[in-house]
Design a protein around this nucleic acid. Structure first.
Lengths: 345, 345
DNA sequence: CTGAAAGCGCTTACAG
DNA sequence: CTGAAAGCGCTTACAG
């Protein structure tokens, strides 16, 4: 259809073989078998000649040809709600690092947390013949995942967990617990939670971790104290508007399950004439790079985002290699800053 | 080395051909030639049978096999400083969209603006046999780019421009101009610029656009008014510290060439007892999603980030198809908000 | 220790 | 209009 020029031919095994007066299969054996295995593959002297030439001419095997034979592409697919969510972008750094170290390359696509897009992007990844997938956008219902598991597609979840599938996540319930304890200790007795999207385990687990501990401490969480919301700044602002406009429930502290939602809540508080860190405590989640740098620095639950990404890759590779894989939950820590440091009297 | 199981075999052309009693080449011709071209490729009835079966069994051609023959992978490489920079993440959304629409898939890697990493990541992309590359991390010296051009690698630049190579960017100088005019009109006469990294055209052009207009209006820009900095929040905070601690040069307004740097500057201002939007005006750049939602909403130059990503893909595809390509500079607009709306008296 | 053959799944001239 | 052959660059039993 288009008349684009093909890329110029690179050096091939055949070229190397011809240059050295060897058969391509011999060259392949030497280059393919690394380290100890290579000893049996060819005479040491031959092996050395081959390797020297390969290095000299910058030989790099054609991955398409290789995977056509081996049926492995060393390609991994990553699907996230959106990469412009800093949390996922940071996790992706961990993925890239770990995948690279293992000789894999990664595709990333945004699904916008929309079921149709999730399917579409997954199909594209599969049509590319990825060896496995990492989903950062799993919904608690898990419908798509069940289908994929039936088709024997290799995948793991990241950031958000779903019952029955391996996942690398933060211990979100623990994070919520830490926040509840902190706010209680600082003297708060009336609180609200900006709870996030109910289809995401992160939102549900952080919220339930908080609620459970709060009640254990003797606190109450009336219906009006839980406001579900989008994960972004606008979502947080809208939720905080709702909370701060409620005349019946007047919290002295707000826990937002996401830093961006917390930032939106800070904006709403300012608009309501409340000084965050004095009139109202706010705590976020993930301790993104912004939290510490805000005009009023934001307390936040620090989750090991990069580590979660790395772990997801390791789990996926284990799955691809046929091993059984256990879900991993990494422990968060609470970082207290100006936004919630004050003692309520 | 590892004993992973190969992925299960998918339906192949041969399978389809056998099922229909045709030769694989016939099936290939029909499926390969789309629309009108297909008419000549086979009898309409045959073509229909083939297409029906292909759809029924969910045939999807093996991209590795296809590209081994055609020497095109329909793979694009994208290298950015880091995806956790929201600006690049949003541009990547445009890239993904446009690439997807054109039947291409994209790899993304972070180079951390480090020359060694840029080389390493580029090599990985090339070893994957990408059809072309988009660089979002170009440095003004352009050393690596010159080498690649000599090797006839197809690429375009995005976000940051370098003389002599095609790029899709915002008209950064114009953005700087808009800010200078705005601050002048609001009555400011002493200003400072948080200028970003001197190796990035974005930083240099935004700054020079600002300075040029400022001087044209009759203003002065002493040496101390320009502070180079990292693009992130911490960088902005440090730069603002320097600016606000200078007893000789007391600006009433700060232009930060990046929203995150602007947010850092807001933090520093607060620490210095200045109320942003009353004692000090601050203007950022890119109008990222956060700007409008901050406790004190941030004025910012809005750049068409998604569009820049899309444009980069279109330019790259044109380059791959052998066409000559012109650089594109998309126009920004200024969005004035609380942080700089006041009139200085 | 090395060579020769077969084949992964496609596409593309070339016949007929 | 359809078939048959060759070949893209690899790997992998199988010989010798």
């Amino acid at each position: 259809m288009t008349n684009r020029k093909p890329r110029p031919a690179a050096v091939t095994l055949k070229d190397l073989a011809a240059e050295l007066g060897l058969h391509p299969s011999t060259v392949s054996r030497i280059l393919h078998a690394e380290g100890d295995t290579a000893r049996g593959a060819a005479a040491p002297a031959t092996a050395q000649r081959v390797r020297d030439l390969a290095r000299a001419v910058g030989y790099s095997p054609d991955p398409q040809a290789k995977s056509l034979r081996t049926r492995q592409t060393h390609l991994l697919g990553v699907i996230v709600p959106r990469l412009s969510d800093l949390v996922l972008a940071v996790m992706y750094e961990g993925i890239e690092e770990a995948a690279d170290a293992a000789g894999y390359s990664t595709f990333v696509m945004n699904s916008l947390d929309n079921a149709e897009m999730q399917r579409r992007k997954t199909d594209i990844m599969l049509s590319r013949r990825v060896d496995g997938l990492i989903f950062g956008d799993a919904h608690l219902d898990g419908d798509i995942l069940t289908e994929l598991a039936e088709q024997n597609v290799k995948f793991v979840l990241m950031n958000r967990a779903v019952q029955g599938f391996p996942s690398a996540t933060c211990d979100d319930a623990l994070g919520g617990t830490l926040v509840a304890q902190h706010l209680w200790d600082r003297g708060h007795r009336v609180v609200s939670v900006i709870a996030g999207e109910p289809y995401a385990s992160t939102a549900v687990d952080r919220t339930s971790g908080f609620v459970t501990r709060w009640k254990a401490l003797g606190g109450e969480i009336p219906e009006a104290a839980l406001v579900w919301s989008r994960f972004d700044t606008i979502g947080g602002r809208i939720a905080a508007e709702t909370i701060l406009s409620d005349v019946a429930h007047k919290p002295s502290a707000i826990f937002a399950v996401n830093d961006f939602a917390a930032i939106g809540a800070m904006g709403a508080a300012t608009e309501h004439g409340l000084l965050v860190g004095r009139d109202l405590a706010i705590v976020g989640f993930n301790d993104t790079s912004l939290a510490a740098q805000l005009p009023i620095s934001l307390s936040s639950v620090r989750s090991p985002m990069t580590e979660i990404g790395r772990t997801a890759v390791q789990m996926l590779l284990a799955t691809i290699n046929g091993g059984p894989v256990e879900s991993v939950r990494l422990a968060p820590t609470l970082v207290v800053r100006e936004s919630s440091a004050f003692q309520r009297t």
